[in-house]
């Protein structure tokens, strides 16, 4: 029988070319959390963040909601972004909010990758080599992010 389950869902809207609107949810046996995030492109900095706690375990947990505002201004491409989120939002607030925030921001990179893929496909120029070159041109911070983007 299933003993523990966690589902994280992230959806990204693009109301304008310079904005990512991200909604993320985390539901597991213990916690129920939601985040709404605005990220500015092309800088990829956090413009706004709102959070809700639907299910929590202690009377102190709600104090983590105002802590979320400390994420405003953080840049997703900073080399220590994950560490900052874990320290500022996680340790000083809620580790599960930090987990969901990193899920949301990682999905922004994936969204940007997918948009490049979609563009090349529409142009009829989609090959793996073209895609790789286009990504490294448009999103240089992804260079050496995994073995597909490492020389």
């Amino acid at each position: 029988m299933l003993k523990f389950s966690r589902t994280k869902w992230v959806g990204i809207e693009r109301p304008a070319k310079n904005v990512f609107l991200i909604h993320g949810t985390l539901e597991d046996h213990i916690y129920g959390l939601e985040l709404d995030l605005t990220v500015k492109a092309p800088e990829l900095t956090i413009l706004n963040i709102e959070g809700k706690m639907r299910r929590i375990t202690t009377s102190e947990c709600a104090k983590a909601i105002p802590v979320l505002k400390k994420a405003i201004g953080l840049c997703l491409t900073a080399p220590d972004f994950s560490r900052q989120v874990n320290k500022i939002i996680g340790q000083k607030g809620c580790r599960h909010f930090a987990n969901l925030l990193l899920e949301c921001t990682d999905a922004v990179f994936r969204c940007a990758l997918y948009e490049t893929w979609e563009y090349l496909q529409k142009e009829g120029a989609l090959t793996e080599d073209n895609f790789r070159q286009e990504v490294l041109g448009n999103l240089p911070f992804l260079k050496e992010s995994c073995f597909a983007f490492t020389d």
């Binding site: 299933l2 523990f4 994280k8 869902w9 959806g11 809207e13 899920e103 969204c111 948009e115």
Partner: peptide, 12 residues
């Protein structure tokens, strides 16, 4: 939506 992620983890 432009992008969607659905992640699930469970233990038995």
């Amino acid at each position: 939506l432009n992008y969607v992620r659905n992640k699930h983890v469970y233990t038995t």
